[in-house]
């Protein structure tokens, strides 16, 4: 009973937050609503005893991704009137795509393939069951190959991002550390022997 109440509370809050993401006018508020939406989904995952995923969702998405998002929004200072310009022009296309997707999703959900049959209870695990351990075992045995590929994709993403953003311009003045360190007295200071001058 308590579980159900908690579920409905977070599910309702999640829907509310998700609606706010796309309806509020201020982009910072939208991003914050998204944070709330992530938090609620993490809570629902916790209810399903998927602690690892719940914590990763909060750490990665709330902690890292959304913070970056907020930074970008604040730094770019987006002009909203420009963004809203095409709204009425693209509305018919947008609505038709949305209706199409909604109908297809409706048909998928009501196809009878995904019904759970009567009262569905999430699998209960013993208190010493480790979600993280089970995930780790699955990732490093059955899913080792896809897991390694995902690693390669991340490496590629780093290389691609750096190669697209790092540009060395010849006219910028930056200190060349290796040259500074390699400085020797001989190349820069000349000792001149001078006779003492008498006045």
């Amino acid at each position: 009973m308590i579980e159900q109440t908690v579920f409905y509370f977070f599910a309702g809050l999640l829907l509310l937050a998700a609606t706010m993401v796309i309806t509020v006018k201020n982009p910072v508020h939208a991003a914050l609503s998204l944070v709330l939406a992530f938090f609620c989904s993490a809570a629902i995952w916790l209810l399903l005893q998927a602690e690892f995923l719940a914590i990763v969702l909060i750490l990665v998405y709330v902690g890292a991704v959304m913070v970056l998002f907020l930074f970008v929004i604040m730094m770019l200072d987006i002009n909203l009137t420009v963004l809203r310009e095409g709204f009425s022009r693209f509305l018919p296309v947008g609505i038709s795509v949305a209706v199409l997707m909604a109908v297809s999703m409706g048909l998928v959900i009501t196809s009878g393939r995904f019904t759970t049959g009567g009262n569905y209870e999430a699998l209960k695990h013993a208190a010493d069951y480790s979600n993280t351990r089970e995930l780790g075992i699955a990732l490093f045995t059955d899913y080792l190959y896809p897991f390694e590929i995902a690693g390669a994709i991340l490496l590629l993403a780093i290389v691609a991002a750096i190669s697209l953003t790092l540009r060395k311009r010849p006219d910028t003045k930056t200190p060349k550390v290796e040259k500074q360190v390699a400085v020797h007295r001989a190349g820069h200071v000349r000792l001149v022997r001078m006779e003492a001058e008498k006045e």
Binding site: Y143, Y145, P146, I149, A150, A152, I153, L156, A157, A160
Partner: peptide, 13 residues
Amino acid sequence: LTVYLGLELLSLA
């Protein structure tokens, strides 16, 4: 899964 991951690796590059 591998079809999709391979495709992403290719596309991203």
